[in-house]
């Protein structure tokens, strides 16, 4: 299977601080990848570099064989790379439904009509359980609902590769299961997914493969059961 996402030697520094060092990662089309790592290990920075929100200093990133390095974020989104933000960043002056309308109008390959936009938007809101909030403003939503909106907005871009950055923090067990189910269904439709998560139950239930970052380096990459037993991963998490 050819890799959909191919990251080679990715490096990112903030001033003198190395946030990411020489990361190699291949993700196959249709794969479900879990990405774990302690706080501050560089997971979100990795997402930001891949999606173009930040510019990386070294290395190369390709999606489906196309080099992304020089492309602005919106073009990467249009090529099929969608991401959610760890801290939800909704469009505050738009309603929940309109929040989804933005990617529906801009990220899709084909131009949607007004009615199609509305229909797709409502369908997505239904999937994340926000259908009855469509006309509300993001600030009227709870933190958890905002996370769902964030995920729905990324899904609305119609991605080939979806990166969900801690979409489940703060959710109840039942809600976590709901989101995991949703992502599994999406994956069943052929969307490749990278899930960044601290909730191990969700990660283990979801991932086919697990990658672990520690202090900006990739320390483990393999089957989930093996990775969690990896001594370096254990040390990072248990702090020995």
């Amino acid at each position: 299977m050819a890799a959909l996402l191919d990251v080679q030697g990715l490096g990112k520094r903030f001033g003198g601080f190395t946030a990411l060092a020489d990361i190699d990662l291949q993700v196959a089309a249709g794969e479900r990848l879990g990405l774990i790592g302690p706080n501050g290990s560089g997971k979100s920075t990795f997402v930001n570099c891949i999606s173009g929100t930040l510019r990386h200093d070294s290395g190369r990133v390709t999606l489906g064989g196309q080099l992304l390095d020089a492309l602005p974020p919106h073009q990467r989104t249009r090529l099929g790379l969608a991401r959610s933000f760890q801290l939800p960043r909704p469009f505050g002056s738009l309603t929940v439904a309109e929040n989804l309308r933005v990617p529906l109008l801009y990220a899709g390959a084909t131009k949607l009509s007004d009615a199609e936009c509305r229909e797709r938007g409502m369908a997505l809101l239904g999937q994340v359980g926000l259908a009855d909030k469509a006309a509300q403003r993001p600030r009227e939503l709870t933190q958890i609902e905002q996370r769902k909106l964030e995920l729905a907005r990324a899904m609305a871009a119609g991605p080939r590769l979806l990166i969900a950055d801690e979409s489940m923090a703060g959710l109840s067990n039942a809600e976590v299961d709901e989101i995991v189910d949703l992502l599994l269904r999406l994956n069943g439709q052929g969307v490749t997914i990278i899930m960044i998560e601290h909730i191990m139950r969700a990660v283990m239930a979801f991932s086919q493969r697990l990658v672990c970052f520690v202090a900006g380096r990739k320390v483990a990459d393999g089957l989930p059961e093996e990775v969690v037993r990896n001594p370096e991963v254990e040390r990072a998490y248990l702090g020995e």
């Binding site: 974020p73 919106h74 989104t77 933000f85 309109e98």
Partner: peptide, 14 residues
């Protein structure tokens, strides 16, 4: 409107 509210998120939305 998306730009006005959050430019990075607007970019990410395409």
């Amino acid at each position: 409107a998306a730009i006005r509210d959050d430019e990075a998120a607007a970019e990410a939305a395409g």
